[in-house]
Design a protein around this nucleic acid. Structure first.
Lengths: 217, 217
DNA sequence: ATACTGACCGACCGGACGGTCAGTTACAGG
DNA sequence: CCTGTAACTGACCGTCCGGTCGGTCAGTAT
């Protein structure tokens, strides 16, 4: 299309810039935008404060660059979420498990994005819902809708709500990771694999007795 | 017991102090500790900055006072959560619904407490788990355990996980309130009553077809 | 009147903040 | 070797921060 075929140069970031971004992710994810000073970022990146302003035109621009980068990473991670094969049961179980795993594997990035999406500015929220949650929800919803069409799942419930429930439970589990080591809570806490296993099981079978009774009463 | 019967005077806070606390709740719940300056609190409370230091010895002390006050309020709200009568089904449904309602009715306070409990200091987290979440979880767990003993609920699932799921779903619903107005999400969003109704229903009956089929297919 | 108290204020302090700028170093292309 | 440019630095700016200080003022008990 373009006549000059401008070379899309990949803008390979210098070592310093990478260090700045890395430091920013670490600090902003822990303390939020207001809790981090440019001096602190510079110190963490082992770089002068002025150097940050050489690469980013303001604190906000640095933050936005980091958020954008992190959102891209999370987005990519979402696309790679495994779904399992065959039976709906297996697909859902694998998806849930896979989602939870990836949350913890990319904990720092996820925390950064989560903070922004839950209590950031409206404009950014909109962009991130588009990029992240929308797709996630839609993938889950389609799993449920397929199950309903195939007759494996009851028709009486709302696939959107179920998707919301899976996501919400996983994210809440992630958010309360540190909390669940504290006294009365630790009694009810389970390792991630057990949690997602039981979550899926519960959602599929429900809690009432007499539906599908357990293997060995 | 005490001989002097020291009059537990209720330390009635002055109008200014009340204004400061109210302003603090509003601002801290929106912007967090680091996002709020003492000048901003003073402005919002229509009071001089020095006056704040007359009533509270530091910014942190003000924040702690506010957190403590808010945690007490939330704690009281939790104790008042309605449970319904009779059948386990009804008790759970009412509890869930009641919990969600109270989250929204005390949104500002809840947000303040939630922020602190999810990403605050370890020491405060411990105190608040003791005061808030512990009791909540235990009440829910006892509902489920009773149901299991009575034979209404399957024995195969973990009551702790269920409690966690109810709480997590409600809190996630609350956290994403603003988000759910944004494009692809709004299609799956439901008003609170419908949400808690469906949530309870799903947890009780599960998603699989053939368990208890819906009233009219 | 006196003495004391709690609520309240304006002016001020040292330091940290976000941001700027003149200048140095490193290095690639002519 | 020179020149241009990107990476980088230390000194500095105005502003805002949390916090302090000296003091006013209404009320009240003696």
């Amino acid at each position: 299309m373009a006549s000059s075929s401008a070379k899309l140069r990949e803008n390979t970031p210098s070592a310093g810039e990478q260090a700045i971004l890395k430091a920013g992710v670490k600090l902003f994810s822990r303390h939020g935008f207001d809790g981090v000073s440019m001096r602190a970022v510079a110190r963490e990146a082992a770089v002068s404060k002025s150097n940050i302003y050489h690469h980013f035109e303001s604190k906000e621009a640095l933050y936005l660059a980091i958020i954008k980068h992190s959102a891209d990473a999370v987005s990519e991670m979402i696309e790679k979420l495994a779904e399992g094969r065959g039976e709906l049961d297996a697909r859902l179980r694998k998806f849930t498990r896979s989602h939870l795993e990836h949350l913890f594997r990319n904990a720092t990035t996820v925390r950064l994005v989560l903070r922004e999406v839950l209590s950031g500015t409206t404009r950014l929220q909109k962009a991130m819902v588009d990029q992240l949650i929308g797709g996630l929800i839609e993938r889950l919803v389609s799993i449920f809708e397929n199950g309903q069409k195939a007759g494996v799942l009851r028709k009486g419930f709302d696939p959107g709500l179920c998707a919301f429930l899976v996501l919400g439970s996983n994210l809440f589990y992630f958010q309360t990771d540190k909390l669940r080591q504290i006294e009365p809570l630790n009694r009810f806490s389970q390792p991630p694999e057990v949690f997602s296993e039981q979550l899926t099981d519960l959602m599929l079978r429900g809690m009432l007795a007499g539906s599908q009774e357990e293997v060995t009463a």
